[in-house]
């Protein structure tokens, strides 16, 4: 008995230390972001900053950072809207409608999810150039709408609804879209909530594709802009950390306010994933 307690206390201590180690980089980012260039590189470092300054943030926001933040929000919100709406529609059809080729079409979509996205990047780049869409919002949004994860998630979710309710609504001759909009959509809201958060996260934190599509400074998103800071201001760590803070803060706030959705979204996606 004594032994058991000892090992579980030891495990708890290790996990606590690990958690601190995981949180420390964020603490270090935040504190560095309030340090001037000279204070940031002081040795020994100021573990708890005394000479605070807002200059890094002021510099960022008088520069293009505000525009980058707008781009990130705009692209992410539009992506979320389209992914959720289209996925809910397709998920509903795949789960509840009868049509020829339904399973084949569904499995074609799902099978591509197992492939690494990098494999489509080159033809996609070619398409975007041909359509004249490089350095546009569309080029960042369209490929994310085309990714079938949302359809998969919404199909799984819609399947759990009872068909009787939908059939009953169909009897009084309501057209299909009305049934979807007024009956199905409200019922799948929790699923959409989880999907919305994941889509927002993957759009907000996308880097690989954005790096390929965007090279104009004004069209950059926060991750691109902040990554660019380190090549332009190699030595200004306060500024780079301030940029990093701005780039991650919205997602952290969303995560802390919607923790439950993250949990349910991850476990839903994992069901026979």
């Amino acid at each position: 008995m004594k032994n058991k307690n000892f090992s579980s206390v030891l495990a708890s201590i290790i996990v606590f230390v690990l958690a601190i180690l995981f949180l420390f980089p964020f603490y270090w980012m935040l504190t560095t972001s309030f340090k001037s260039q000279t204070v940031a590189v002081k040795i020994p470092p100021e573990w708890i900053p005394v000479n605070l300054t807002l200059n890094n943030y002021i510099n960022l926001f008088t520069g293009p950072a505000l525009r980058w933040a707008f781009n990130s929000f705009f692209v992410s919100i539009l992506t979320v809207f389209f992914v959720c709406f289209f996925s809910a529609m397709a998920g509903y059809a795949f789960a509840k409608k009868e049509f020829w080729g339904r399973n084949t079409l569904f499995w074609i979509m799902i099978a591509t999810m197992a492939l690494p996205r990098q494999v489509i990047v080159i033809p996609l780049y070619e398409i975007m150039i041909k359509l004249g869409l490089t350095n546009t919002y569309e080029s960042l949004i369209l490929p994310l709408i085309a990714w079938p994860f949302g359809v998969f998630l919404m199909k799984q979710y819609t399947q759990t609804l009872h068909s009787e309710i939908l059939d009953a609504a169909g009897i009084d001759g309501s057209p299909g879209f009305k049934i979807f909009y007024f009956i199905v959509l409200p019922m799948v809201k929790p699923g959409i909530g989880a999907l919305a958060i994941f889509t927002f996260m993957s759009s907000w934190n996308d880097y690989f594709w954005q790096l390929i599509m965007i090279n104009q400074d004004l069209m950059k998103t926060l991750p691109l802009g902040v990554a660019g800071l380190q090549t332009q201001h190699t030595k200004d760590y306060g500024l780079i950390m301030a940029g990093s803070t701005i780039a991650s803060l919205p997602m952290i706030v969303i995560f802390l306010s919607f923790q439950k959705y993250f949990q349910s979204g991850i476990t839903m996606g994992a069901v026979k994933g």
Binding site: N205, Y207, L222, P223, L224, A247, M251, I252
Partner: peptide
Amino acid sequence: PVVSSIVT
């Protein structure tokens, strides 16, 4: 670290 951008 999962929700923060990989760039960050």
